[in-house]
Design a protein around this nucleic acid. Sequence first.
DNA 1: AAAGATTGAAATCTCAATCTTG
DNA 2: CAAGATTGAGATTTCAATCTTT
Lengths: 179, 179
Amino acid sequence: MVRRLTILSMPLRQLPREDQLSAEARDVDPAAIMAFLSVLFTQAEIARRMDAHFGRYGLSYGRYSVLILLRRREGRCATPAEIAYEIDVTRATVTGLLDGLESEGLVSRSCRKDDRRSINVKLTKQGLALLDRMLPDHYARLAAVMTNLSQAEKTQLITLLGKVREGLDVTMPRETAAE
Amino acid sequence: MVRRLTILSMPLRQLPREDQLSAEARDVDPAAIMAFLSVLFTQAEIARRMDAHFGRYGLSYGRYSVLILLRRREGRCATPAEIAYEIDVTRATVTGLLDGLESEGLVSRSCRKDDRRSINVKLTKQGLALLDRMLPDHYARLAAVMTNLSQAEKTQLITLLGKVREGLDVTMPRETAAE
DNA sequence: AAAGATTGAAATCTCAATCTTG
DNA sequence: CAAGATTGAGATTTCAATCTTT
């Protein structure tokens, strides 16, 4: 079964050359642009590999996110609204993800007695087993990608990316309404 | 018109805590995992902002990629196969992107005389005008995100992400057939 | 009315099949 | 038959509308 996962999907095989950048806009800081594009570029490469990785377990990033979230929750359960908030997608998306996960027995939906508008999503034994089976491989792969970096460099990278995200909030704030 | 752009789309509102990681797999290097997830996390945040940014110009990342690629090409034209290779998507995807861009007059398709299997895609005046209108804003936004980083830090970030991509090729090689 | 969940339509992207040309 | 382009079906995700419960 083909299961096309889509963490991201943007590619661009090569970073632009500096002379191209200066032909496209005046007064650009090439280092800033290249740093920005490096993040996009790196993540695109990561996403492609991750898609294949998740595919081996019949998962997508979205589906995985639901499972790992439930595993971290008290009682291994949550409402769709909570899931949507935590993994930062719409409720409609969660409905779709749950449809698939439930049909494969990885999560279960049940009614709630305290508020019958809401439902309870629970990680099943099979869902937990799938995670337990994949997580060692999963984290081993993630960590392996960083083998070229020393401990100091990993810390540096984390710090630098943190600064990038701070810059994002200032210069390109999220548009979604307040939650 | 709603134009949902999708650079990436994976979210996860928070990075996991270290105690969660160690509960999910043994012998993980938390710094490596966090560094990896920082890249994903940062790109997801970027993608969300970029979607909104591109949307203001009626573009998506895919559509923008086609336009900027054509602008950089000799004669501002290319075949769909070349576009597919350069922006690293399937030809089917390119067909879809071109359908949209052509219907809005941003690119044109014309037959080739040397090989009638192939077609020629050209950036139109309107396409070029759109790029010229958006590029200054575009690059200004990109650069602004990096204001928190010194020149040295930008260079560092570029270098570190390069190492990450090298690690990817070794530990999670692409599966696509050789081109 | 407001909140939770779902459904339906649309956008993006992939694979597999098809159609045309070489 | 190879290669270039397209079409059709499926996956993921969003928005807007709807249905149920508070």
